[in-house]
Design a protein around this nucleic acid. Structure first.
Lengths: 244, 244
DNA sequence: ACTGCGTGCTTTGTATACAGCGGAGTTCGA
DNA sequence: TCGAACTCCGCTGTATACAAAGCACGCAGT
C-alpha cells in the first residue's frame, strides 16, 4: 500500500527538490507579484512533472525556499487546490494531487466528446493559416519522434489538439479542453510511447487534417473521435503492462 | 455604454446588498472555517444571482460586512477568481464576472458534447433506482412549471442532467458537467421560460429516459444531443427578443 | 479652456504575530 | 506487554500592521 501518510523529509531534501523550480522563479519574480509568480512557478512545476505526488508541502518550507512570507505561498496553494493540482490530505496538509488509473481512463471519454465537437467547429471555421500551422505541428511531432524526444512529442501532440480547439472559435470549449490537457500533461506515461502508436497517431492527425481542410464536417468529427478512442485503447493496453 | 469603470457606492448600499448573503453566512460560520464559509457563501450568492455583475467588491467592505479580517476574504475571492466567478477589472479591483451573450451560445456546444457522452455512459450503467429518481425529478419539474415556479423548474432541469452525469459513473465527466452547470445557473433567463419550451423539454427528458431504461445506447446519445441542440436553438431565438 | 504633471488618498499586496487544532510520542495503568 | 489517554510540538488559520501601487483630483502652464 505504499508509504505512510506522513512522509518525513529534511529541509535539505526540500531544498534540493525545489532547486530547479526556484530557477524559473527568479525570473518571474521581477515582472509579477510574489503571489502570482509563486503560483505560476508551482503550477508549471507540477504540470511539467518536476513536482510529483508524494512529499508534503509545508507552507513555511516553501516560504523559506522562495524567500517570501507564508502569505503569497498560501494564496498560490489555494489557487492550485481549486484547480485540483494539489490536494489536502489528512489534517490540513497539502500535497501534489495524485491521479488514479481510473481517472486516466475517464478523461479519455471526455476527450472523445470535446475533441469531437472541436473538430466539428474547426472544420467550419479553420483558415488556411490554421491548416498550415497544424501540418507544421504534426510534422515537427514526427521529427521529434525520430529524434527520440518523447517529451517533445507529447507536447506537440497536445499543441496539435490545442490548435484545433483554438480554431473552433469557441472560447469556452477551448478553456474546457485546456483543463483536460493540463491533466493529460501530468500522466506518467504517454500513449505515444507505446510501440507503433506515434506512427498511427501522426497518420490519424493527417487524415483528420485532410478532412478539416476539405470542409467535410462529419468525417472530421468522426476521425477526431476515433483518434481519441484509439488513444483510450492504448491506455487500456498500457494498464496491463506496468512501467517496470 | 453603461456606467464608468468605477461605480461609486456608499457603505449603506453594500450593507443592504449583502444583507441576504450574510444570513446564509451566519449559519455556515459555525461549522466551517472563516475562509471556507466566506467562499461558500459568496459562491452560492453568485450562482443564485443574489450577487450580480456590476458593483465592485472591496476587500475591506466585505471584511466589515462578514465581520472577519481581510485574510479570509482575500482567500475566498482568490478561489472564486480561479473559477471565473469573479474577475479583476482595472487596477486590481474585483467584481462579479460578466457572462457575454456569445459565451452563452458557446456553452451549448459543450453541453451537446458532454451530455451526449454522459447519456451514452449512463445508458450502460444506470440502475433502476437511477431511472426512478430521474422520472421523479422530471415529474417534479413539470409540477413546478404548472405552479409557475420557474426558479424551481430550471433547478430541477439541472438536477436531471446532473443525475445522468452521476449515473455515467465517470467522475471526471461529472466534474466537467458541473462546471458547465455552474455557468448555466448564472444566466439571466432560462430557455424553459420560453413559450412552450417547458413542455417540449419535459417530453424530451421522458423520451431520453425511455432510451436509457431500455439500454438503447445510440438512441439515448442522439436524444441527449438533440435535446441540447434544441435548447441552443431556443437561446438563439431568445437572443432576438431582449428581456424588455 | 485644455492638457500635463504632481500630490494625496484609497485599495491592494506582503509580512509578521498570535491563536487553535491535530498528530506523534510517551507514560501510566491494567 | 498491550492499550489508552495525555502532553507537547508543529503546523495551519486568522488577525493586524506595514509597504507599495493605482486613481482621482487639483493645480499650473500653455
Amino acid at each position: 500500500m505504499g508509504r505512510a501518510v506522513t512522509e518525513p523529509m529534511s529541509k535539505q531534501d526540500i531544498d534540493s527538490l525545489m532547486k530547479p523550480v526556484v530557477d524559473l522563479w527568479q525570473e518571474r519574480r521581477t515582472r509579477e507579484g510574489s503571489s502570482d509568480a509563486v503560483y505560476g512557478t508551482l503550477r508549471e512545476a507540477i504540470l511539467s512533472k518536476a513536482l510529483t505526488p508524494g512529499p508534503q508541502l509545508a507552507e513555511e518550507d516553501l516560504a523559506r525556499v522562495f524567500g517570501v512570507s507564508r502569505t503569497p505561498i498560501r494564496e498560490a496553494i489555494l489557487r492550485l487546490e481549486t484547480e485540483r493540482l494539489v490536494e489536502r490530505s489528512s489534517g490540513r496538509r497539502v500535497a501534489v494531487a495524485r491521479i488514479s488509473p481510473a481517472e486516466i481512463l475517464e478523461i479519455y471519454d471526455v476527450r472523445v466528446a470535446l475533441d469531437g465537437v472541436a473538430a466539428e467547429l474547426a472544420t467550419q471555421r479553420a483558415t488556411p493559416p490554421d491548416i498550415a500551422q497544424l501540418r507544421w505541428i504534426n510534422e515537427k511531432m514526427i521529427a521529434s519522434g525520430q529524434a527520440g524526444d518523447y517529451a517533445g512529442v507529447s507536447a506537440l501532440s497536445l499543441d496539435f489538439h490545442d490548435w484545433i480547439a483554438k480554431a473552433s472559435g469557441n472560447g469556452f470549449l477551448l478553456s474546457q479542453i485546456r483543463v483536460v490537457h493540463d491533466r493529460v500533461r501530468r500522466f506518467e506515461r504517454t500513449t505515444l510511447q507505446h510501440p507503433g502508436r506515434l506512427g498511427s497517431a501522426a497518420e490519424e492527425h493527417e487524415r483528420l487534417l485532410d478532412a478539416i481542410a476539405s470542409g467535410d464536417v462529419d468525417r472530421a468529427t468522426s476521425l477526431a473521435r476515433a483518434h481519441m478512442l484509439n488513444a483510450k485503447k492504448i491506455r487500456l493496453a498500457m494498464a496491463e503492462t506496468p512501467p517496470d
